[in-house]
Design a protein around this nucleic acid. Structure first.
Lengths: 230, 230, 230, 230
DNA sequence: AATGAATGAGTCTTCATTCAT
DNA sequence: GATGAATGAAGACTCATTCAT
């Protein structure tokens, strides 16, 4: 009752990692169901009961694997992350021309965003509601910006980009521009034709950096903001 | 007893517009308290009870003026809107040089955002949660974009801006870039020095539009995204 | 949601002290109902729902005044305490003969215990279950023992009681003997005639202390263990 | 399909007596684990799951041997009983002097109580919670009291003890005094030096019975209250 | 016999909303 | 209009018990 010794498991709650095949199936079913329900009802209106129901398991089974809505959401994010993880553009494509690179990475980003629009909307929402996830997005955004900043810096050093721009701030700005436009179009439904969206964003990147058209044989260009960038 | 006589107000709830001076005071106290509580606890965790308590009125009194949290939030938005409403830059300042105009409007926007950062964070949050408010922001964003698009178009026509850019999409993109950076810095706490933020954003606008430096005698420049733009 | 600022009330929960007459009535009804339900079902099986039901209020109303079963139990204890509180024997009766005093206080204690047997059983039970209440009983027992020890000491000093006895330990021992016998008889139902119980306990007190029969004009004698003693 | 054939065991549940050596081991492990968990968490907070975990068996295996927490507790009690069972004092020691006997049996009781304090606390607790176990303790206490009463009676008959005392009630009273003091000191932590505790209790027994110091050649003295006395 | 997941009944608890004074 | 208590629907969560493998 009152002042009992804490449980022997060190205060951790029950959630287990499934040991049997059946357990794996159930856990997966729950994560899949969670995605369904979250996308359908939004994070806030999603009831744990509904997730269990959608997974065709008893309500209590949810707690075999997760402690809370937040926790299963985390699991969902991790899973999606894995799916979306892939090597960087340059390594995959061998593209080195900055213009081509900007185009490729913006296209890739926008395509992925469009494809997972409901999920992205969900992430947007949760980042506004849950502190932990908000932090995650900040860090992710910073990582992207740092990487892009490096590329911008190298373009500046080789005389291909406007040397007056602060690389890190510029990287942030151009990244949020792209990701926010993706949100505007694919989540909020702003009607902008896809091709026009891509070309305009490309153009602003190029103009913004003042890319010298006659880029001779140069190296880098920024990688696109990742799917989870803010 | 059987057939209820329909209420005179057609089934609408009670919320009244205060008639007495006391009523006005109470209603105001509630709106002020709502802002306090919303900023402190976030929209979701703010309980109507807390708002009433903060306003030093009985919990039941809330319903004399509002039907729901959403409704008092609306009232809060309207009030803030009034406070922030002011004529457009050009009309106020007479500035016509595009560069100056970009600088002035970005500064004005960022200053206002910083000053009301907690409120802006709140708006961001509610737009993710409440459908009605989400629509409001879309419309507001569109209005801004249309206005800025007009200015971009006129710059293009006078040969001062890159004619390849789609004016409306560009207007959207540059606007969200600024507003999102404001969010990043003033709400999420990204550490970017104020002056560096302003100059970088200015630069990207200018570069992005390819403003001809020798802008001879031309007119327009985009108005900054308003305080409530997304 | 996640890391929200704590409520403005300093972390205290809602429970209020009733401000209206109606509120006082409701709160009282709940405490009375709690006693009923606790005595009927035992502490563990008593559901908050049942208490509310017995008090003829909605289930949620319980939480207007209490946070938990433990809390309303505390309120019940306090109330009972007040009812049972009365001046010490000697002050009330003027008895000074040790034998008479022992008899009077044992009788009083046993009578009160018998009258409130179900409540006493309840206290016994909760002291085994709830740490806070267990502490309360320890302290109460100590207070009694200290008082009785003082009396024993003075009897020893005036040559009326066995000087070999440790006053404090003896006080504890004789007190727990009486209270535990009360429990045995009135709660567990051990069939011992009331009068035989009293006289036997009296006798053991007298013998135990080796009270000199010819106690001339002496002063003190121990006060009986109080109703709540362990 | 319609009429269920009654199970061969008459509706009784499964719990088995282990047939294999492995079964014996598992069952033992569970009882040992139960003691651990009960002592650590208290009867109420002990979950069957925890007992299984502590025994390193799957949660479902519990039900191979027991139907409920109550049932394994019973098994635990029985096991402890066996361990503690030993012949009566007199038979073991040959002591016949009443004073020596009181001393010996009190010492023995208190030593055993101290050694198993957590277990005794547990028994105390369960007796307050579980009806079946409460009955057990009543019976046990009665058995002790009857035996001690017989001894008191014989002391009275041989002129060694106060003839005014009711033997049975006195036996109860002195027994509960000892056992309750043991609880006070070893479970509740009342700080009384061991030796002082023993000698004081001895003294009260002797004084209480008014043992004639010159005890000539007499036989009996009460056996101490057994470990499970109330 | 052992395993370890699945089940779901039973309570607690919150708080927007109503209402008698 | 204001008050402050009462209401009760809604959901979260626990854990003893069952069961397929």
């Amino acid at each position: 009752m009152a002042a009992q010794a804490p449980a022997a498991d060190g205060g951790q709650k029950q959630p287990i990692t499934p040991r049997s095949a059946r357990g794996v199936r159930t856990r997966n079913a729950l994560v899949v169901a969670a995605r369904e329900v979250f996308e359908r009802d939004g994070y806030l209106d999603a009831r744990i009961t509904d997730i269990s129901k959608a997974a065709h398991v008893a309500s209590g089974s949810f707690y075999t694997y997760f402690n809370s809505k937040e926790e299963i959401f985390e699991a969902l994010v991790e899973q999606v992350q894995e799916e979306m993880l892939h090597p960087h553009l340059r390594e995959r494509t061998g593209i080195t021309d900055p213009r081509e690179m900007i185009d490729a990475s913006n296209r890739e980003y926008l395509r992925a965003y469009k494809k997972n629009a409901r999920l992205m909307a969900l992430f947007e929402q949760v980042a506004q509601i849950d502190e932990k996830f908000k932090q995650l997005r900040i860090e992710r955004g910073n990582a992207f910006a740092r990487r892009n900043a490096k590329l911008i810096r190298s373009l500046q050093e080789s005389g291909q980009a406007d040397p007056d721009l602060d690389p890190l701030v510029t990287a942030h700005a151009l990244s949020v521009m792209v990701s926010r436009m993706a949100y505007l179009v694919f989540v909020l439904g702003q009607r902008i034709p896809y091709e026009k969206l891509v070309t305009t964003l490309n153009k602003i990147w190029e103009n913004g950096l003042q890319l010298r058209p006659e880029a001779p044989r140069t190296p880098a260009a920024p990688d696109a903001p990742g799917v989870l960038d803010g």
